[in-house]
């Protein structure tokens, strides 16, 4: 131990706050250091002088003046938020503050969203209906309003249809429901029929029944209409 370290322990030593080992080290230094012994003695004497300072008594006017000042003073009331927070300490107060901040953020986000949905934009006015409502249901609704598909003149020339009335495509009945629906989709997607490659259009043998021909045609278009999803049409 050096003299500087010894000085740092003067208070702890005279107030018996050092542990046994620290006391032995401190006293071992004192035994070998004349300067520290002298300084410690001076340290004690100056503290004694401090403790001997006489007590100061307040003047006789102290009470009178204080009572006059207190008479003009009112006890302050505590605001509501302080009354709520006052009983809380440490983590509880932080947790409550965090919850309050989160609530403010959520309420703010809610009103922000509400403002967005109320804006007069065309996109936002239409999109929610088409995108959020079941798209399939909407498509069915459109299909009911559209006229049934009628092959173009070009197709009619390529394929021999026995009777144009057959192409009224009313046979949407029973087990053939999906085929009819697919044809309607074809119609919804525009004039793809006119762009059909000839290789896809297999002529129907003449000996087949008209109803069968119609079904053949439908099956072909099914193959074709499924193709765009893969081919990117």
């Amino acid at each position: 131990m050096n003299c500087l370290k010894a000085e740092e322990q003067f208070s702890a030593y005279i107030e018996d706050e050092l542990d046994y080992q620290a006391v032995r080290t401190f006293e071992a230094h004192l035994n070998t250091c004349e300067s520290c012994r002298r300084e410690l003695a001076l340290f004690r004497e100056s503290l004694d002088l401090l403790h001997q300072l006489p007590q100061i008594k307040p003047s006789t006017e102290f009470d009178v003046t204080l009572q006059a000042r207190l008479a003009d003073t009112h006890v302050e009331s505590i605001p509501f938020w302080q009354r709520v927070l006052q009983p809380l300490h440490g983590q509880a107060r932080w947790a409550l503050s965090g919850v309050a901040a989160l609530l403010v953020i959520l309420v703010g986000f809610y009103f922000y969203q509400k403002t967005l949905t109320k804006s007069p934009s065309v996109d936002t006015a239409v999109a929610p209906e088409t995108s959020r409502a079941a798209p399939v249901a909407k498509e069915r609704e459109v299909k009911q309003q559209l006229p049934l598909a009628v092959p173009s003149q070009e197709l009619q020339s390529l394929v021999k249809f026995p009777d144009s009335s057959v192409l009224d495509l009313q046979p949407v009945r029973g087990s053939q429901q999906p085929q009819s629906a697919t044809l309607d989709l074809q119609q919804l997607r525009g004039t793809q029929q006119s762009q059909l490659p000839e290789s896809d259009m297999q002529p129907v043998p003449e000996n087949q029944q008209p109803q069968r021909v119609e079904q053949n045609y439908i099956l072909r278009t099914i193959n074709y209409t499924e193709a765009p999803t893969e081919g990117g049409l």
């Binding site: 003047s59 000042r69 207190l70 009112h74 006890v75 302050e76 505590i78 006052q86």
Partner: peptide
């Protein structure tokens, strides 16, 4: 300074009196 000390001691009591409800 005793004069200032008395003045500040009175001010301390006044502040304590005001803050009675805040005392925990």
């Amino acid at each position: 300074d005793q004069d200032s000390a008395e003045d500040l001691a009175q001010e301390t009591f006044v502040r304590m009196f005001k803050a009675i409800k805040r005392y925990k």
